[in-house]
Write a protein that binds this DNA or RNA. Sequence first.
DNA 1: ATGAATTCCTAGTAATCCAATAGGATTTGT
DNA 2: ACAAATCCTATTGGATTACTAGGAATTCAT
Lengths: 134, 134
Amino acid sequence: MKLTTRSEYALLALVYLARNEDEGYISIETIATAQGIPPKFLEQLMLALKRAHFLRSAKGQKGGYQLAKRPNQIFLADVIRLFDGALAPTESVSENFYESTPIEKEKKLTRVFKDIRDYVSNKLEKTSIADVVR
Amino acid sequence: MKLTTRSEYALLALVYLARNEDEGYISIETIATAQGIPPKFLEQLMLALKRAHFLRSAKGQKGGYQLAKRPNQIFLADVIRLFDGALAPTESVSENFYESTPIEKEKKLTRVFKDIRDYVSNKLEKTSIADVVR
DNA sequence: ATGAATTCCTAGTAATCCAATAGGATTTGT
DNA sequence: ACAAATCCTATTGGATTACTAGGAATTCAT
């Protein structure tokens, strides 16, 4: 029932970039310092975010990162899925996981977890970075 | 964002015992076979459930386990908490985790995760074994 | 009394994941 | 040329997960 620090850090970085959208490219060092994230660790996350097309980068001096999408087009679900995989509270609640696991027979139990998954999904799919940047 | 198989198995075992409440003591072997759980693994879970007073046991031949509480007094939250710890989707959402983590400053982001935690908690606190046994 | 069935209990293990670090290669601005 | 940055891969230590192993204790049936 937990989120990794990877997702947490990635969201913090995105929020920071959204808040400073007009500043051009911003370095990892700057973001790491501002948000309290270990810089070399953040580096990996930024790279992943870039590869997933949430960010754009510029190399060399004066380089750094900036958002590649508008903050209202980046949803929490996208980011969390990138770093933590599925959103479901139990794997057996992820669609298609059934069929091999004993819980499949317990329909009512399954229903409870599906309800949770639906709520979580819905919430995270609908909340964008713009929504959390005051 | 996931539940361990421990919790899943424990819930399956409790559901089975609830469904067979009038059969006296039931052995691990019987439950494991019925619910498709590795028996030695289940043994550990049963022991923990017993120590947490959800179950009563009898040793020796004809021994086994039975519920120590009525099914409507055993809530999913209790069981999951026993095996998986806190229910929060992010540790930083668990009360008192803040104060040391960078996300604390991002109130709106925090709010989203708190909402999720509240929904999940509420759902699991209110659903009992009786509710999922048809 | 013996043996089988059972719970009780602790230890161990292989695999995976997590958070973080290390360090070199490459690119770019001055 | 040098400094500042991204790019990229590998590695590490620690924790957790999902099990398995195996012996001790207890109880029932014969």
